[in-house]
Design a protein around this nucleic acid. Structure first.
Lengths: 149, 149
DNA sequence: ACTTTACCTCAAGTTAGGTTGAGGTATTAG
DNA sequence: CTAATACCTCAACCTAACTTGAGGTAAAGT
């Protein structure tokens, strides 16, 4: 099984995605391929990792466009090293930490507020715009500050 | 300011959403109104809490359809009590806990895997379908089990 | 050789969650 | 009383992330 022997169908089966998804990702600039003599796509083995990373990032709530930008920082000329991937994942880890923290805050508010009856009152942190999570900024914003994109 | 004096514009300003959003939510069965003599919408004050709850639930990653189903369990005949809302939020709290746990797992995998170089190998928990997070089920599934919907 | 399976492109369709705009009526402020 | 807002309906549009289908070519199995 040579490095260059990955057809679109094989990649799709291996990664659990549809062929159309791979076409789509390619059109969006998330993965790359070259063509064989008969105009069919062929992939390097590292496409598998790219796809795993795309999928993992999506589960974190990161958009394809952001993923594309992140993947674009990987080196063009050589196969990415462990260090390259580590740099990528470090960024996302911060993002994920923030997202988790946000959901935890929301969980505490949910426990404390929605059930307690304060939600319709001026001083409720979920309901009201002037709470500590949304101190600055104008207009009625509910829990916006620090929210995942 | 009577209980019945909430126009669509007032509700929109108060909740920080657009009038069109309120129309949309109504069409989707998330909120209700009645009409005055001139066919304009009028709301009971508890619509404010419903909208806050909708917004909070959305931040948790719950779809409008799920939110609709949850809100449908509230009593029809009377204004929901604190207890009614508490029951609702208890369900979502579990959901949120699961979601947070999932993201934490993902974070740990991210730290341990994407950067380490194992992602393309058979025994990597993110990459491979046979890991402890996806033990049962068929086909190549990456981190699906316990994933947020 | 021939038949099945895999691939190709490109356009159009899908779902969620809204937003925008046109054309017309109601309410409110001065 | 009149002008400025606010509201109404309905259809069309929007983004993200894909999927489906039509019409045609390539590669692989027997």
């Amino acid at each position: 099984m040579e490095d260059s022997n990955w057809t679109v169908g094989r990649v799709a089966r291996r990664c659990g995605v549809k062929v159309s998804t791979l076409h789509f990702y390619e059109k969006k600039g998330l993965i790359r391929s070259w063509r064989n003599a008969g105009n069919q796509r062929r992939y390097k083995a590292d496409v598998l990792r790219r796809i795993s990373v795309i999928k993992a990032a999506q589960k974190m709530g990161i958009s394809l466009e952001e993923i594309r930008r992140a993947l674009a920082t990987l080196p063009d000329n050589r196969t990415p090293t462990a260090g390259d991937w580590a740099a990528l994942s470090a960024n996302w880890r911060d993002d994920l930490d923030a997202r988790i923290a946000y959901l935890e805050r929301l969980r505490d508010l949910l426990t404390g507020c929605i059930g307690c009856g304060c939600l319709s009152m001026k001083n409720c942190p979920i309901y009201n715009e002037n709470d500590k999570l949304a101190r600055e900024g104008d207009g009625p914003v509910i829990l916006e500050r620090g929210a995942p994109r």
